[in-house]
Structure formats: structure tokens, C-alpha cells
Design a binder for these strands. Structure first.
Lengths: 207, 207
DNA sequence: CGCTGGCTTGAGTAAATTCAACACACGTGG
DNA sequence: CCACGTGTGTTGAATTTACTCAAGCCAGCG
């Protein structure tokens, strides 16, 4: 078990990997950097998530993994995990399914960044995050303050933080969210879902 | 085995799935539709690709699958595929790896659509496609005319077809590509890679 | 106390979209 | 056979969206 401060980089792109990170407490993200300097967050992670399952079958990381809050992590040696899976195929299937859910979320993100306007895009990202937090039993959508900064929201949605700020104000004026000292809470869940074009099917949550 | 015309929809979002599609000849894409009517292509597929591996573990499709050229397909019943994997774990691992490569490509697409300008974005998409075609042994990058239309390029890059047209002209003026009656060939591979910010690591091609 | 990181706001600019038209190839039906 | 519609590509002009640049605020912290 290991404690990390907010903003710690756990895995660098190109790094050779020997163990898998399990997020126990706190929040994290995966991101890639373009050569023009732009950072794109490709996923957020919540307690219980495995952050780099792909390293069971890839030996090098193709993206970075960073905490976005203070966090606690467990590191599982890949060799141990591999023999666990060999001995118990059901675990392998469950983990495979996990990585397929990951992929489904990436597809939705491509849609989100590619074909939705700025406000819808941000709203969708918020909806997805709280839907996952709720499904993990961590909190209810309406009683939860989101852990990410406006810069992180910008990097996740392919926008600038300035524009995110303006859109958040607009969402808050419409009553979908409430802001207090930079902390975002969702106070108009139905409305947020509607402006977001959010439907949770792609999360494949049902048992 | 089954033949399809260009533009056939093989799988609809929400559909219940009993078999897996293997693309034998021709090209296909996976896409999602936003409620504002926008279509986002989330991946292109080449001969040899399995188009919906995720249905081994999901019972409903979360996106559409369509041909973008005349195509030949084989359909594998999921039950048969599952018992094949149970009997032969190495096949399962190979397929799992396949789905992880898929996911890695989705991540790169999120970056592409989120953080690159229009021209780089298109160039990157073209680079990826020919890199995959080459790695599959179908053709060499420079001697291959791309199978997709400008509308499809637009839907894959999150742009409009009008803007794609202008950027293609610009790429062709720079000598990176050559166009002839709507057919695109890559005639400046090194230059295209450079404007694209393309590095093939994320394709995890190495054996 | 002075930094730093995060948030906010305004004004000007750049990028990509929208709207509108037209050209061309193709296939279909009269 | 030709007429017609459709899909694809092309181009220009006006518009919108989001970005850039710049400044300033506030809270937390060394």
C-alpha cells in the first residue's frame, strides 16, 4: 500500500511496467500529451478501479497515469496477477470485461469530444463521473462534490480552462450545478442529464 | 460467409448480439450517434479485424457497425467462440490483447479529436490507417488508395466535410497526399507523419 | 509575507462551421 | 437511350464557437 499526493505521476508513457495499480482511495486520471504541448485526459478513475490493466499484455505504457487528489494505492505484481488468472479463469473474464467497459467509455469520449458542443461535453463528463461514483456506492450524484479542477475538466473535454469556466457558469445559472469556492455539486441531475445527452447504457453497469 | 454492399449496417446500437463479425474483405467502421444528429466514427477496420469482440462479454451493442466499402464477412456464434476460448486459454489471451489494442487506439483518438488541429487530426487518422494496413500486410503506405469518403473522414475526426475538403487540399498542396477523382494516396509519407505527430507505438504492433 | 495554483472576466482573434451553390459520376427507372 | 436523383467533392462568404492574451482575485501554504 502506498500514499500519493495530488498530482503524482504513477506511470509515464513509454515506461516498462511490472505491476498493476489498484486505486484504493482518491481519484486519478490517464492522459496523453500531444507534441504541440496539449494534454488530453482520456479517463478518470475512482476508488476500486485498476488503473493499468492493459499491462497484463503490454510491456510498455502508452499513456501517463496521475493522481488528481491525494490517493492510496495498492500495487499488484503482474506475475502474481497472471498466475491468479491462469488458476482462476473467472477472474480473467471479469478483468477482461473490465477492460471492455473501459474501451466502451473511450468510445463515448471520442463521441463526446468529437460531436458535442462545449456545454454538453462538460455536462456529459460530469454525468458520467457521478454515475460511476454512484454505481460504485461511493456517493449519490446530488450529494457529492466533484474532485477535479477546471483545468482537468478542460483537458478531459478538449477545451480551454477559460471556456470551461464560462460554461460552468452557464450550467450553474441554469441550475444544473452549484459552485462554491471552486467546488462543484450537482443540484439539477435531471436537467444536467438532459443537456448532456447522457444515457448510462455504455457504462454496462447492470450486473 | 456473407457479402455486404458499402454502407450496410451490420450491428445497431442497443441490439442483442449472438455472433461475432470477422471482416474478411473490404472496410468497415464503428460509430455512435449523438442526440443532436452528429455521427462520430470511433474506429475503422481492415480485413482480418474482428468488429465486435466486446460482445463476448456484453449482451447489447453500445454502438453501430457499418461497412464503408463492399465487404465479405464471417459470423462466428458467440457460444462457439466462448467454448473455443475455454478450451484454449492462449486464444483468449490473444483476443484479450486485441481488445486492449482497440482500447489503446480509442485513447489516441480521444487525444486526436481533443487536442490536435484540423489538419494534424486528418493527417493522423490517415497515418494510422495506412500503418495498420501495412502491418496487416495488405499494402504499403505509398501504394494504397484510402477507402473512405470525405464525409467519413469528417465523422472520424469530429470535423465537417467542408473543412475536411479544405484541409485535404492543403495537405495535397504540401505534397503529403495526392488526390485523383476523390481517391487519396499518400505520396509524402514522412511529411504526413510529421504534420500528424504520428508515432505508431500505441498500435502495439511489435510481436 | 509573498508565492502559487485555481478561478474569473473582458476584449480581440483565430479556427471551424454554416449556408449556399455548383460540378461531376453513377445508377435507376421511364 | 436519356432524364433524374443521389452521393461525393468543391468553393466562397458570412457566422459562430472557442481560443488567446491579459489582467485581477482569492485561498492556502511555506
Amino acid at each position: 500500500m502506498s500514499e500519493k499526493t495530488s498530482g503524482s505521476t504513477l506511470i509515464y508513457e513509454g515506461q516498462r511496467i511490472e505491476e498493476c495499480c489498484l486505486l484504493l482511495e482518491g481519484y486519478a486520471c490517464r492522459n496523453k500529451i500531444a507534441s504541440n504541448g496539449g494534454r488530453q485526459i482520456v479517463s478518470f478513475h475512482i476508488p476500486g478501479d485498476i488503473l493499468d490493466l492493459q499491462h497484463l499484455l503490454f510491456d510498455r505504457a502508452d499513456h501517463n497515469v496521475q493522481t488528481i487528489s491525494p490517493a492510496k494505492l495498492a500495487f499488484l505484481p503482474l506475475t502474481a496477477l497472471r498466475s491468479l488468472i491462469d488458476a482462476n479463469p473467472a477472474i480473467g473474464r471479469a478483468l477482461w470485461r473490465d477492460s471492455l467497459v473501459d474501451a466502451s467509455i473511450f468510445r463515448e469520449w471520442v463521441l463526446n469530444v468529437g460531436r458535442r458542443g462545449a456545454k454538453e461535453r462538460i455536462a456529459h463528463m460530469l454525468c458520467e463521473f457521478v454515475a460511476r461514483v454512484e454505481s460504485a456506492g461511493i456517493a449519490s450524484p446530488t450529494a457529492f462534490t466533484l474532485p477535479m479542477t477546471q483545468v482537468e475538466i478542460a483537458d478531459a473535454t478538449g477545451l480551454t480552462s477559460v471556456h470551461v469556466n464560462r460554461m460552468l457558469r452557464s450550467l450553474s445559472e441554469e441550475g444544473a450545478i452549484t459552485r462554491d469556492g471552486g467546488k462543484i455539486t450537482i443540484t439539477g441531475w435531471e436537467q444536467l442529464k438532459q443537456t448532456a445527452d447522457f444515457s448510462p447504457d455504455y457504462l454496462h453497469i447492470a450486473a
